[in-house]
């Protein structure tokens, strides 16, 4: 079922959480709302769910205007960061909750709860209480509980935020595959760009209550629309454009703007090259899978470059070595605002 958000605004007192946000999520899509804290991503999710009212604008789910509908009438599934399981109910009773409220026949409820526990791989744990489960297991119960009522859309608010790194990685790969299986239109909130890129079909980047860019992970990475997007989705070097160092960019583009380039898009050469500029290696940091080199430019600006271990060895980089650097990819933005 599709979701359409039309020019939605929401204020909390003086704070503008959402500023005329418009968004379309296609049927069966898996969309990530990505942004720093306070960017409005959770508020947008809660507005879609009906847990939060909006000041102006419209929200349509499956073509139906749900702006003034209560959360109960929207038929959505919501998954919370801290699971929000009913601690006094067993796993089975938690999953059955929505069906019991809807007064479905007992046999149907049991059948469906059994199917869902199988889906989230918790068969056999149905009679446990939430306190007897691990974090990852609890979040899977919450997911099964939300899916039990066959929601039109599934909304997840930082679903992996409370889990430790290893379980989080595992669970997000699993969520991706679950979605491929179940196909329910899903929107999840995250502040982790890697998580958004890995799990979602489409990523919505938010900042200050506005949408900065919507696109597939590839589009966002290859063609960031704003300085904020480029700096938010990964480490980036920012240099004043007037330096005119980067021949891949036209002079016009760079004159009054900042040039953004990612550490991994910097090529280090031993010999001069028409498109390269000289630099001095100031510091070398071994990150394990790659090597980070701090480079000092002649004008006292500094750059961070990442090179593979093979490159590092073949270049035989050392501190104070004179090298030449060339950018494989760079973008110029007139804006000043950058995510730090």
């Amino acid at each position: 079922m599709s979701i359409i958000v039309e020019s939605v605004s929401k204020n909390f007192g003086e704070f503008q959480a959402l500023d005329r946000v418009s968004l379309k999520v296609k049927d069966g899509g898996l969309v990530a709302l990505l942004g720093p804290s306070g960017s409005g991503k959770s508020t947008l999710l809660r507005a879609i769910s009906g847990l939060e009212t909006v000041d102006s604008g419209k929200i349509l789910i499956n073509g139906q205007d749900t702006t003034n509908l209560d959360v109960r009438q929207r038929n959505i599934g919501f998954v919370f960061q801290h699971y929000a399981l009913f601690k006094h109910l067993t796993v089975r009773q938690n999953v059955a909750f929505g069906l019991d409220i809807r007064k479905r026949p007992r046999g149907e409820v049991q059948q469906r709860v059994g199917d869902l526990l199988e889906l989230v791989q918790l068969t056999g744990l149905g009679d446990r209480y939430p306190s007897q489960l691990s974090g990852g297991q609890r979040q899977r119960v919450a997911l099964a509980r939300a899916l039990a009522v066959q929601p039109q859309v599934l909304l997840l608010d930082e679903p992996f935020g409370a889990l430790d790194a290893k379980v989080r990685k595992e669970l997000r790969a699993w969520l991706r595959r679950l979605h491929d299986e179940v196909h329910v239109t899903s929107v999840f909130v995250t502040h982790d760009q890697e998580e958004a890129m890995e799990v979602a079909d489409e990523v919505v980047i938010m900042n200050h209550g506005r949408i900065e860019q919507v696109g597939t992970p590839e589009e966002i990475y290859d063609n960031p629309a704003t300085a904020f997007v480029m700096s938010f989705i990964g480490p980036v070097n920012v240099l004043p454009g007037h330096l005119g160092l980067f021949k891949t960019l036209t002079t016009q583009e760079t004159r009054n703007s900042n040039v953004f380039l990612r550490p991994q898009d910097i090529e280090i050469l031993e010999q001069p090259h028409p498109e390269a500029i000289p630099a001095v290696v100031a510091r070398i940091i071994h990150l394990g899978w790659e090597v980070q080199a701090e480079l000092a430019l002649p004008d006292e600006h500094n750059l961070t470059a990442h090179v593979s271990r093979e490159q590092f060895k073949s270049l035989d980089l050392r501190v104070n070595q004179n090298v030449f650097i060339k950018s494989k990819f760079a973008k110029a933005f007139p804006e000043v605002e950058v995510f730090r």
């Binding site: 209560d70 959360v71 919370f80 929000a84 399981l85 909750f97 809807r102 919450a142």
Partner: peptide, 10 residues
């Protein structure tokens, strides 16, 4: 949040 969870489940 458990209250919101209950509402979201109808």
């Amino acid at each position: 949040e458990i209250e919101e969870a209950a509402w979201s489940l109808g």
